[in-house]
Write a protein that binds this DNA or RNA. Structure first.
Length: 375
DNA sequence: GTATGCTTTCGGC
DNA sequence: TTACGGCCGAAAGCATAC
């Protein structure tokens, strides 16, 4: 009897009272550049991806907070950024260099986590439920320690959100940026969520906002008043249930270590717009070599190949094909790539500006079923 | 009808 | 309206399977 009670309490604790941290490096690329050259901190810094067209063709990857205050945003054209911040320093992005810094930071973060999950180059989730014994005060102390460690060893600022699950931690981390720390305890969920616009929920974008608007819902508080059956009726079982839970700050998704990227691709801007099959194919073949080098390194097989194109009007389109059997040779990428290029050209009349190729749907070369047969 | 898988688009940084 | 990278993962939308 006592044992049963103990089990059920323990299960409740793990389900309801997790302590999750979301760590996000502030203006990461710009932060690394500032650390390398502290004089940069005096002014606006814009880290750019220059295209193969030369001049200022390209887009902004990220900017420091001074540039941000002038209106510069990631994704905007470099030309536009130069109009907004003519005195800023414009630097070419050095991705490999940032990756090295990222790896050192992630190593620090991993050291503070019971369970660790890296997301992209500059974000991570840490489950610290065990080591804090579900104590949010201890969670906040770990967050402060992480911020101190990352600042001292890498000279970088980060913002941390602490919450009872991934959803809340992720939503909390940007609230106090830069160099922020925001803790949201289970008892504070309702007041935190109620007045938020529905798009404030991580996972709710424009599409879902419009659909919710259609049933008279604008804020998370309003969403929480809708009955579950109604949400399932409008959004289907899975998304309806997700919305129902999210509106209450409930999220059962777990922090779990990732095995590496799930897709590997390369994309580039052509020297001039074209619809020439041979020109596009030869560029894709080059990119395929690079993609193949990476999957070779990872020692994985792929089953899906995707071709991606941006046309003169700057609209993106993709074509993909899943192979009957996993492959690992560059010829499979190139051959399928050519097939997809043909399909794309057949269905589109625009000139092509950017092209890319990517592979996904990975499997391990030695199938586990084969191993299990001998166990 | 629901689950699953595949293709395409979207959106963040 | 003008005018733009290179990635990535997730969402959306559809087809097919059960």
């Amino acid at each position: 009897m006592r044992a049963l009670q103990h089990v059920s309490i323990e299960r409740d604790l793990t389900h309801m009272n997790r302590v999750i941290l979301h760590v996000d490096l502030d203006a990461f690329y710009a932060g690394v550049e500032e650390r390398e050259n502290p004089d940069l901190k005096e002014g606006a810094v814009v880290v750019c991806m220059f295209s193969a067209r030369g001049g200022d063709s390209g887009a902004v990857a990220t900017q420091n907070y001074l540039a941000r205050s002038l209106g510069v945003r990631s994704g905007m054209s470099i030309k536009q950024a130069k109009k907004l911040a003519p005195d800023a320093v414009f630097l070419p992005a050095r991705r490999g260099f940032y990756k090295e810094a990222s790896e050192r930071v992630m190593k620090i973060l991993r050291g503070h986590a019971d369970i660790f999950e890296q997301v992209g180059i500059d974000e991570a989730f840490l489950d610290v439920t065990e080591s804090t014994k579900c104590d949010f005060k201890k969670g906040a102390e770990i967050a402060m320690l992480i911020k101190k460690n990352v600042a001292e060893s890498e000279g970088l600022a980060c913002s941390v959100g602490v919450g009872p699950n991934k959803l809340i931690a992720k939503m909390a981390s940007p609230l106090d940026k830069p160099d922020g720390l925001t803790v949201i305890r289970p008892g504070e969920l309702e007041s935190f969520l109620t007045s938020l616009d529905v798009t404030g929920l991580w996972g709710v974008g424009d599409k879902t906002k419009k659909a919710l608007s259609g049933i008279g819902v604008e804020t998370v508080g309003e969403l929480s008043k809708i009955e579950l059956p109604r949400l399932i009726e409008v959004f289907g079982k899975s998304k309806g249930a997700w919305l129902y839970n999210a509106a209450r700050g409930v999220d059962n998704s777990v922090v779990s270590e990732r095995g590496g990227r799930e897709q590997i691709g390369r994309i580039t801007t052509l020297a001039a717009d074209t619809r020439d099959l041979e020109a596009i194919t030869s560029k894709i073949n080059e990119l395929a070599l690079e993609v193949h080098r990476q999957i070779d390194e990872r020692e994985v097989l792929f089953r899906t190949v995707s071709f991606f194109a941006v046309t003169t009007d700057l609209k993106g389109q993709s074509k993909s094909k899943t192979l009957a059997a996993p492959a690992n040779n560059v010829e499979a990428i190139q051959k399928t790539g050519r097939e997809l290029i043909n399909r794309f050209l057949a269905g589109n009349e625009q000139l092509v500006r950017r092209v890319g190729i990517r592979v996904s749907n990975f499997t391990q070369p030695t199938g586990q079923t084969t191993l299990h047969q001998f166990e």
